[in-house]
Amino acid sequence: MSAKRRFTVSDFFLHLVVLIGFVVSVYPIYWMFVSSTQDNEQIFGQSTYLGFGHSLGANFHDLMVNSGINIFRAVGNSLEISIIATLIAVLLATLAGYAFAIYRFRGSKAMFNIFLISLMIPPQVTMIPLFILMSKFHLINTMWAVILPALVTVFGVFLMRQSFMTFPVELLDAARIDGLGEGRIFLRIVLPLMRPILSSLGILTFLASWTNLLWPLIVLDDASKYTIPVALSTLMSTQTSPNYGMIMLGASIATIPMLVIFLLLRKQFVSGIMSGFYR
Protein backbone atom coordinates (compact mmCIF):
# COMPACT_ATOMS: atom_id res chain seq x y z
CA MET A 1 0.00 0.00 0.00
CA SER A 2 1.38 3.38 -0.92
CA ALA A 3 1.46 5.93 1.84
CA LYS A 4 -0.50 8.57 -0.04
CA ARG A 5 -3.78 7.46 -1.56
CA ARG A 6 -6.27 9.54 -3.38
CA PHE A 7 -9.52 10.30 -1.58
CA THR A 8 -11.94 8.20 -3.65
CA VAL A 9 -15.74 8.34 -3.88
CA SER A 10 -16.07 5.30 -1.64
CA ASP A 11 -13.77 6.99 0.88
CA PHE A 12 -16.14 9.94 0.83
CA PHE A 13 -19.14 7.74 1.63
CA LEU A 14 -17.19 5.90 4.31
CA HIS A 15 -16.46 9.19 6.07
CA LEU A 16 -19.99 10.48 5.51
CA VAL A 17 -21.66 7.46 7.14
CA VAL A 18 -19.21 7.44 10.06
CA LEU A 19 -19.72 11.16 10.50
CA ILE A 20 -23.51 10.73 10.65
CA GLY A 21 -23.11 8.03 13.31
CA PHE A 22 -20.68 10.25 15.19
CA VAL A 23 -23.03 13.24 15.16
CA VAL A 24 -26.01 11.15 16.28
CA SER A 25 -23.91 9.72 19.14
CA VAL A 26 -22.43 12.99 20.33
CA TYR A 27 -25.11 15.56 19.57
CA PRO A 28 -27.60 14.60 22.34
CA ILE A 29 -24.79 14.91 24.88
CA TYR A 30 -23.78 18.27 23.45
CA TRP A 31 -27.42 19.34 23.48
CA MET A 32 -27.77 18.30 27.12
CA PHE A 33 -24.97 20.69 28.07
CA VAL A 34 -26.14 23.47 25.75
CA SER A 35 -29.76 23.41 26.87
CA SER A 36 -28.69 23.71 30.49
CA THR A 37 -27.83 27.32 29.62
CA GLN A 38 -31.18 28.01 27.98
CA ASP A 39 -34.70 28.81 29.11
CA ASN A 40 -37.84 26.93 28.07
CA GLU A 41 -38.58 29.32 25.23
CA GLN A 42 -35.17 28.69 23.70
CA ILE A 43 -35.24 24.93 24.25
CA PHE A 44 -38.56 24.41 22.50
CA GLY A 45 -38.40 27.45 20.24
CA GLN A 46 -37.38 27.35 16.62
CA SER A 47 -33.78 28.09 17.54
CA THR A 48 -30.69 26.56 16.01
CA TYR A 49 -30.16 23.97 18.76
CA LEU A 50 -26.46 24.73 18.68
CA GLY A 51 -25.65 27.89 20.58
CA PHE A 52 -25.39 28.52 24.29
CA GLY A 53 -28.12 30.59 25.97
CA HIS A 54 -27.99 33.15 28.73
CA SER A 55 -29.95 31.35 31.43
CA LEU A 56 -27.21 29.30 33.08
CA GLY A 57 -27.29 31.50 36.18
CA ALA A 58 -31.08 31.41 36.44
CA ASN A 59 -31.18 27.64 35.90
CA PHE A 60 -28.48 27.13 38.51
CA HIS A 61 -30.37 29.28 41.00
CA ASP A 62 -33.54 27.34 40.25
CA LEU A 63 -31.74 24.02 40.68
CA MET A 64 -30.27 25.01 44.02
CA VAL A 65 -33.37 26.70 45.46
CA ASN A 66 -36.55 25.37 43.85
CA SER A 67 -35.80 21.85 42.68
CA GLY A 68 -36.43 20.03 45.97
CA ILE A 69 -33.13 18.19 45.64
CA ASN A 70 -29.50 19.03 46.28
CA ILE A 71 -27.65 17.88 43.20
CA PHE A 72 -24.19 18.26 44.75
CA ARG A 73 -25.31 16.29 47.75
CA ALA A 74 -26.54 13.60 45.35
CA VAL A 75 -23.19 13.58 43.54
CA GLY A 76 -21.48 13.20 46.92
CA ASN A 77 -23.83 10.38 47.97
CA SER A 78 -23.32 8.58 44.68
CA LEU A 79 -19.54 8.90 44.93
CA GLU A 80 -19.54 7.70 48.53
CA ILE A 81 -21.80 4.71 47.83
CA SER A 82 -20.08 3.70 44.59
CA ILE A 83 -16.55 4.00 45.99
CA ILE A 84 -17.29 2.06 49.19
CA ALA A 85 -19.26 -0.61 47.31
CA THR A 86 -16.54 -0.95 44.68
CA LEU A 87 -13.65 -1.24 47.13
CA ILE A 88 -15.34 -3.87 49.29
CA ALA A 89 -16.86 -5.81 46.39
CA VAL A 90 -13.54 -6.00 44.54
CA LEU A 91 -11.72 -7.10 47.69
CA LEU A 92 -14.25 -9.85 48.47
CA ALA A 93 -14.34 -11.10 44.89
CA THR A 94 -10.55 -11.10 44.68
CA LEU A 95 -10.16 -13.05 47.91
CA ALA A 96 -12.70 -15.65 46.81
CA GLY A 97 -11.41 -15.88 43.23
CA TYR A 98 -7.88 -16.32 44.56
CA ALA A 99 -8.93 -19.18 46.82
CA PHE A 100 -10.77 -20.98 44.00
CA ALA A 101 -7.82 -20.69 41.63
CA ILE A 102 -4.86 -21.24 43.95
CA TYR A 103 -6.06 -23.62 46.67
CA ARG A 104 -7.67 -27.02 46.56
CA PHE A 105 -10.23 -27.51 49.26
CA ARG A 106 -13.30 -29.49 50.16
CA GLY A 107 -16.59 -28.05 48.92
CA SER A 108 -15.01 -25.74 46.38
CA LYS A 109 -16.70 -27.49 43.44
CA ALA A 110 -20.13 -27.39 45.06
CA MET A 111 -19.75 -23.72 45.95
CA PHE A 112 -18.61 -22.94 42.47
CA ASN A 113 -21.64 -24.62 40.92
CA ILE A 114 -23.98 -22.71 43.20
CA PHE A 115 -22.29 -19.47 42.12
CA LEU A 116 -22.79 -20.47 38.50
CA ILE A 117 -26.52 -21.09 38.99
CA SER A 118 -26.98 -17.81 40.85
CA LEU A 119 -25.61 -15.92 37.85
CA MET A 120 -28.67 -16.93 35.87
CA ILE A 121 -31.15 -15.34 38.27
CA PRO A 122 -32.01 -11.70 37.50
CA PRO A 123 -31.57 -9.23 40.36
CA GLN A 124 -35.25 -8.28 40.38
CA VAL A 125 -36.04 -11.59 42.10
CA THR A 126 -34.24 -10.46 45.24
CA MET A 127 -35.82 -7.02 45.52
CA ILE A 128 -38.89 -7.82 47.63
CA PRO A 129 -37.05 -9.96 50.22
CA LEU A 130 -34.14 -7.52 50.35
CA PHE A 131 -36.57 -4.68 51.00
CA ILE A 132 -38.13 -6.64 53.88
CA LEU A 133 -34.64 -7.49 55.17
CA MET A 134 -33.51 -3.87 55.02
CA SER A 135 -36.65 -2.69 56.84
CA LYS A 136 -36.17 -5.31 59.57
CA PHE A 137 -32.62 -4.08 60.18
CA HIS A 138 -33.67 -0.41 59.98
CA LEU A 139 -31.37 0.23 57.05
CA ILE A 140 -33.98 1.90 54.82
CA ASN A 141 -32.83 5.41 53.96
CA THR A 142 -29.20 4.62 54.75
CA MET A 143 -26.44 4.15 52.23
CA TRP A 144 -25.88 0.59 53.53
CA ALA A 145 -29.23 -0.47 52.08
CA VAL A 146 -27.76 0.39 48.68
CA ILE A 147 -24.23 -0.87 49.32
CA LEU A 148 -24.83 -4.29 50.90
CA PRO A 149 -26.63 -5.99 47.96
CA ALA A 150 -24.07 -4.44 45.57
CA LEU A 151 -21.25 -6.31 47.30
CA VAL A 152 -22.29 -9.64 45.81
CA THR A 153 -20.48 -9.72 42.47
CA VAL A 154 -20.50 -13.38 41.51
CA PHE A 155 -19.26 -12.35 38.11
CA GLY A 156 -16.27 -10.71 39.84
CA VAL A 157 -15.35 -13.99 41.53
CA PHE A 158 -15.35 -15.73 38.15
CA LEU A 159 -13.31 -12.98 36.55
CA MET A 160 -10.71 -13.04 39.33
CA ARG A 161 -10.54 -16.84 39.39
CA GLN A 162 -9.89 -16.81 35.66
CA SER A 163 -7.06 -14.29 36.03
CA PHE A 164 -5.45 -16.17 38.92
CA MET A 165 -5.35 -19.38 36.87
CA THR A 166 -2.21 -18.09 35.16
CA PHE A 167 -0.62 -16.69 38.30
CA PRO A 168 2.99 -17.90 38.86
CA VAL A 169 2.65 -20.23 41.86
CA GLU A 170 6.43 -20.47 42.23
CA LEU A 171 6.28 -16.93 43.52
CA LEU A 172 3.91 -18.00 46.30
CA ASP A 173 6.11 -20.98 47.19
CA ALA A 174 9.16 -18.78 47.39
CA ALA A 175 7.36 -16.41 49.72
CA ARG A 176 6.18 -19.31 51.88
CA ILE A 177 9.76 -20.57 52.19
CA ASP A 178 10.75 -17.08 53.25
CA GLY A 179 8.25 -17.46 56.06
CA LEU A 180 5.47 -15.12 54.89
CA GLY A 181 1.94 -15.99 56.03
CA GLU A 182 -0.83 -16.62 53.48
CA GLY A 183 -2.57 -13.34 54.24
CA ARG A 184 0.61 -11.34 53.92
CA ILE A 185 1.48 -13.06 50.64
CA PHE A 186 -1.89 -12.04 49.28
CA LEU A 187 -1.54 -8.40 50.33
CA ARG A 188 2.15 -7.87 49.52
CA ILE A 189 2.70 -10.00 46.43
CA VAL A 190 -0.58 -10.98 44.82
CA LEU A 191 -2.58 -7.74 44.94
CA PRO A 192 0.12 -5.49 43.46
CA LEU A 193 0.65 -7.90 40.55
CA MET A 194 -3.05 -7.99 39.74
CA ARG A 195 -3.57 -4.26 39.37
CA PRO A 196 -4.78 -4.24 35.73
CA ILE A 197 -7.55 -6.77 36.26
CA LEU A 198 -8.46 -5.21 39.62
CA SER A 199 -9.01 -1.87 37.93
CA SER A 200 -11.13 -3.52 35.23
CA LEU A 201 -13.36 -5.15 37.80
CA GLY A 202 -13.39 -1.95 39.84
CA ILE A 203 -14.61 0.15 36.92
CA LEU A 204 -17.33 -2.37 36.09
CA THR A 205 -18.55 -2.45 39.68
CA PHE A 206 -18.39 1.32 39.94
CA LEU A 207 -20.39 1.81 36.72
CA ALA A 208 -23.06 -0.66 37.84
CA SER A 209 -23.42 1.07 41.18
CA TRP A 210 -23.29 4.58 39.74
CA THR A 211 -26.04 4.01 37.16
CA ASN A 212 -28.40 1.89 39.26
CA LEU A 213 -31.79 3.57 39.55
CA LEU A 214 -34.31 0.93 40.60
CA TRP A 215 -32.90 -0.34 43.88
CA PRO A 216 -31.88 3.06 45.35
CA LEU A 217 -35.30 4.38 44.28
CA ILE A 218 -36.89 1.66 46.40
CA VAL A 219 -34.81 2.05 49.57
CA LEU A 220 -34.10 5.79 49.63
CA ASP A 221 -36.97 8.22 50.10
CA ASP A 222 -35.29 10.96 52.05
CA ALA A 223 -34.11 13.62 49.56
CA SER A 224 -30.84 14.15 51.45
CA LYS A 225 -29.91 10.49 50.83
CA TYR A 226 -30.67 10.40 47.10
CA THR A 227 -28.12 9.10 44.63
CA ILE A 228 -27.78 10.85 41.27
CA PRO A 229 -30.21 8.67 39.29
CA VAL A 230 -32.87 8.95 42.02
CA ALA A 231 -32.38 12.71 42.39
CA LEU A 232 -32.63 13.22 38.63
CA SER A 233 -35.74 11.08 38.34
CA THR A 234 -37.55 13.10 41.02
CA LEU A 235 -36.44 16.28 39.28
CA MET A 236 -38.40 15.08 36.29
CA SER A 237 -41.53 13.97 38.10
CA THR A 238 -42.13 16.55 40.83
CA GLN A 239 -42.16 19.66 38.69
CA THR A 240 -45.61 20.80 37.63
CA SER A 241 -44.42 23.41 35.15
CA PRO A 242 -40.86 22.25 34.69
CA ASN A 243 -37.92 24.47 33.92
CA TYR A 244 -36.32 22.21 31.34
CA GLY A 245 -33.03 24.09 31.35
CA MET A 246 -32.74 23.45 35.06
CA ILE A 247 -33.42 19.73 34.57
CA MET A 248 -30.77 19.54 31.86
CA LEU A 249 -28.35 21.41 34.12
CA GLY A 250 -28.91 18.75 36.77
CA ALA A 251 -28.30 16.03 34.20
CA SER A 252 -25.13 17.79 33.02
CA ILE A 253 -23.72 18.15 36.52
CA ALA A 254 -24.49 14.49 37.16
CA THR A 255 -22.66 13.47 33.98
CA ILE A 256 -19.42 15.35 34.68
CA PRO A 257 -17.93 12.97 37.31
CA MET A 258 -18.23 9.99 34.96
CA LEU A 259 -16.64 11.95 32.10
CA VAL A 260 -13.75 12.95 34.37
CA ILE A 261 -13.21 9.38 35.54
CA PHE A 262 -13.27 8.21 31.93
CA LEU A 263 -10.69 10.78 30.84
CA LEU A 264 -8.39 9.82 33.71
CA LEU A 265 -8.71 6.06 33.24
CA ARG A 266 -9.47 5.68 29.56
CA LYS A 267 -7.53 2.46 28.93
CA GLN A 268 -8.78 0.69 32.04
CA PHE A 269 -12.29 1.78 31.14
CA VAL A 270 -12.25 0.10 27.76
CA SER A 271 -10.61 -3.08 29.05
CA GLY A 272 -13.09 -3.12 31.94
CA ILE A 273 -16.01 -3.00 29.55
CA MET A 274 -14.41 -5.73 27.47
CA SER A 275 -13.88 -8.05 30.43
CA GLY A 276 -17.45 -7.38 31.49
CA PHE A 277 -18.63 -8.69 28.16
CA TYR A 278 -16.49 -11.83 27.97
CA ARG A 279 -17.71 -13.37 31.16
Binding site: L91, L92, A93, L95, A96, Y98, A99, F100, Y103, R104, F105, S108, M111, I114, F115, S118, I121, V125, T126, P129, L130, L133, L148, P149, L151, V152, V154, V157, E182, G183, F186
Partner: peptide, 20 residues
Protein backbone atom coordinates in the same frame (compact mmCIF):
# COMPACT_ATOMS: atom_id res chain seq x y z
CA UNK B 1 -8.75 -21.29 51.72
CA UNK B 2 -11.85 -21.04 53.86
CA UNK B 3 -10.70 -17.77 55.35
CA UNK B 4 -10.31 -16.39 51.85
CA UNK B 5 -13.76 -17.51 50.70
CA UNK B 6 -15.65 -16.78 53.93
CA UNK B 7 -16.23 -12.99 53.56
CA UNK B 8 -17.70 -13.34 50.11
CA UNK B 9 -19.66 -16.42 51.07
CA UNK B 10 -21.34 -14.67 54.00
CA UNK B 11 -22.44 -11.75 51.82
CA UNK B 12 -23.46 -14.13 49.05
CA UNK B 13 -25.67 -16.20 51.34
CA UNK B 14 -27.20 -13.20 53.11
CA UNK B 15 -27.90 -10.94 50.15
CA UNK B 16 -28.37 -13.35 47.27
CA UNK B 17 -29.18 -16.94 48.26
CA UNK B 18 -31.48 -16.10 51.14
CA UNK B 19 -33.47 -13.50 49.14
CA UNK B 20 -33.83 -15.87 46.19
Amino acid sequence: PYWFVAPFLVIFLAFLVFPI
